Amino acid sequence: MMQDKLCSTCGISLTCGSEADTCWCMDYIPLEAIAEGKDCMCEACLKNTLEKTETASCKQQGQEDYYIENGFYVFTENYHLKRGSCCKNGCRHCPYGFKK
């Protein structure tokens, strides 16, 4: 069953299908915990929250090998140096000088 809800972050109207296991949000990794009093989020707010959560988590763990930008993982120069060779994909932070 689909439910009409409001985003708990920005207040925009959204449709939730979590009770029917058909919600669009199931395409995203689940949040560890939702703050007390919060419910569903619209797609933009969910993406933003996931990006902040992932970036903060990586920094807390000392893993500064990537960050998330617009839902995509972007590997840092540090990651590429640890990898030890160029993958020749034209990565943004390639320390080996490869350009497509």
Rank of each mutant, 00 (worst) to 15 (best):
N48R: 14
T49W: 05
Y79V: 00
R83A: 08
K47H: 04
F75V: 12
S8M: 06
N70S: 08
E54H: 02
E36Q: 13
N78H: 07
K47T: 01
D65N: 12
K82N: 09
E64H: 07
C25D: 14
E64V: 12
G17M: 12
L14M: 08
L31S: 13
N48Y: 07
G62M: 12
G71E: 07
Q60S: 13
K100W: 00
T55A: 06
I34Y: 11
Y96T: 09
K47C: 01
L31F: 11
K99N: 15
E54G: 00
P30A: 06
T76N: 13
Y66G: 04
G62Q: 13
T55S: 06
Y79S: 06
F72E: 12
E32Y: 10
G11M: 05
M41C: 03
E32N: 13
P95R: 07
L46Q: 06
T53I: 02
E54I: 08
K59R: 14
Y73L: 05
E54T: 04
Q60P: 00
T49L: 06
V74G: 10
C42S: 04
E51C: 06
Q3C: 03
K100S: 00
T76L: 13
K82W: 04
T49H: 10
K59M: 06
C40T: 08
S18P: 00
C25W: 11
M26C: 04
D4F: 00
Q61V: 02
D39E: 10
G17L: 14
G62I: 11
G17C: 13
K5W: 06
T22M: 07
R83G: 03
K82D: 08
Q61T: 05
P30F: 03
N70K: 13
T9R: 04
C23S: 12
